[in-house]
Amino acid sequence: TVKFKYKGEEKQVDISKIKKVWRVGKMISFTYDEGGGKTGRGAVSEKDAPKELLQ
């Protein structure tokens, strides 16, 4: 599970739902399947990112 803040809201998403991951400076950005055909997005700092996300 990845915990992150998006627009001031605390969120979390299961690693299995993450589609795409990329690095922006010291942040790790990602998109994930929100269900219902929607794609969500989020970002975590490199130090807070789970190891599975960095692979």
Score class of each variant (00 low, 15 high):
54 L>E: 03
12 Q>I: 15
32 Y>H: 02
27 M>F: 12
35 G>H: 05
17 K>A: 14
6 Y>E: 08
18 I>S: 00
41 R>S: 07
2 V>F: 14
19 K>G: 06
16 S>F: 08
36 G>R: 07
26 K>T: 15
1 T>R: 07
3 K>Y: 14
6 Y>W: 14
37 G>L: 04
45 S>T: 12
1 T>K: 12
54 L>F: 09
48 D>K: 10
52 E>P: 07
5 K>R: 13
10 E>N: 12
37 G>M: 04
53 L>K: 01
32 Y>M: 01
44 V>D: 00
46 E>D: 09
14 D>Q: 13
52 E>Q: 13
6 Y>M: 06
42 G>W: 03
14 D>S: 13
13 V>H: 01
26 K>M: 12
44 V>H: 01
34 E>P: 03
30 F>Q: 00
52 E>N: 06
34 E>L: 15
33 D>V: 07
52 E>S: 11
2 V>N: 01
28 I>Q: 00
37 G>I: 03
48 D>Y: 13
27 M>C: 10
5 K>T: 14
3 K>L: 11
16 S>M: 09
28 I>L: 11
55 Q>D: 14
15 I>C: 03
50 P>L: 04
15 I>F: 08
31 T>S: 07
42 G>Y: 06
5 K>S: 14
1 T>H: 11
14 D>L: 14
53 L>S: 01
17 K>W: 07
6 Y>S: 08
19 K>D: 08
37 G>R: 04
7 K>Q: 09
33 D>G: 03
10 E>R: 07
48 D>L: 11
35 G>Q: 05
13 V>A: 04
42 G>F: 04
6 Y>Q: 08
33 D>R: 03
54 L>C: 05
37 G>A: 04
22 W>D: 02
21 V>K: 03
51 K>V: 14
55 Q>L: 13
7 K>E: 08
36 G>F: 13
31 T>R: 03
20 K>C: 09
16 S>K: 08
4 F>C: 03
39 T>A: 06
18 I>H: 00
3 K>V: 11
2 V>P: 01
46 E>P: 07
44 V>K: 01
45 S>I: 09
48 D>C: 09
43 A>M: 15
34 E>S: 10
10 E>V: 15
8 G>P: 00
35 G>C: 04
49 A>F: 11
16 S>Y: 08
9 E>S: 09
26 K>Y: 14
4 F>N: 01
31 T>V: 10
40 G>R: 06
35 G>A: 07
15 I>W: 04
7 K>F: 10
48 D>H: 13
36 G>P: 08
53 L>W: 08
36 G>E: 14
23 R>E: 02
8 G>R: 03
47 K>L: 13
13 V>K: 01
37 G>Y: 05
30 F>Y: 01
28 I>P: 00
6 Y>I: 10
17 K>Q: 14
13 V>P: 00
42 G>A: 06
6 Y>V: 14
16 S>N: 14
34 E>G: 07
47 K>R: 13
9 E>G: 08
36 G>N: 15
24 V>N: 11
12 Q>A: 10
52 E>W: 15
39 T>D: 07
4 F>S: 03
49 A>C: 12
18 I>D: 00
15 I>N: 02
38 K>M: 10
3 K>A: 08
35 G>F: 04
44 V>Y: 02
24 V>Y: 11
38 K>P: 03
21 V>Y: 05
54 L>I: 14
46 E>L: 14
9 E>N: 10
28 I>S: 00
19 K>L: 15
11 K>G: 03
49 A>R: 01
24 V>W: 12
23 R>P: 03
32 Y>F: 14
50 P>D: 03
46 E>C: 05
22 W>F: 06
38 K>N: 10
29 S>D: 04
37 G>Q: 04
30 F>P: 00
25 G>R: 05
33 D>S: 06
10 E>W: 15
32 Y>P: 00
24 V>G: 04
14 D>C: 07
36 G>M: 11
24 V>C: 10
51 K>N: 11
38 K>C: 04
